[in-house]
Amino acid sequence: MPDALPASATRKVPAGTLYRGREGMWSWVAHRVTGVAIFFFLLVHVLDTSLVRISPEAYNDVIATYKNPIMGLGEAGLVAAIVFHAYNGIRIILVDFWSKGPKYQRVMLWVVMGLFVVTMAGFLPRHLMHVFGGE
């Protein structure tokens, strides 16, 4: 009976979990991480917005607890996650449907990062001024 397979062939966890590494894998990891984070925010966001159905006071009381610098930074992180997920999602669509998409997937990730920086440069100063009380 060939029942003595080497341990390496029967372990459940593969020796390396890096797949191919580099831009292709890390953008895939980031897409999953940002997607899950946005999803859990969305569940909470629908629940807190639903307080408008209870009373103006109930909604305003909960929203008031959000108006502090820690939540303001959390909102900035949420927007960053959404912006990356959105632009990288367009990149995924181009890889799937554009005939040259797979060839340029790595270049397109750097375009995604560039557009991400530009978008956040437009959003962050204004949002942080609102949060930290500037004009």
Partner: peptide, 21 residues
């Protein structure tokens, strides 16, 4: 959604029941 609620006007500080209503 993000532009209207977080960037335009007074941004996140303007959000309350009156804004949503």
């Amino acid at each position: 959604h993000l532009f209207v609620n977080l960037v335009a006007g007074e941004g996140v500080t303007a959000i309350d029941f009156g804004f949503v209503a």
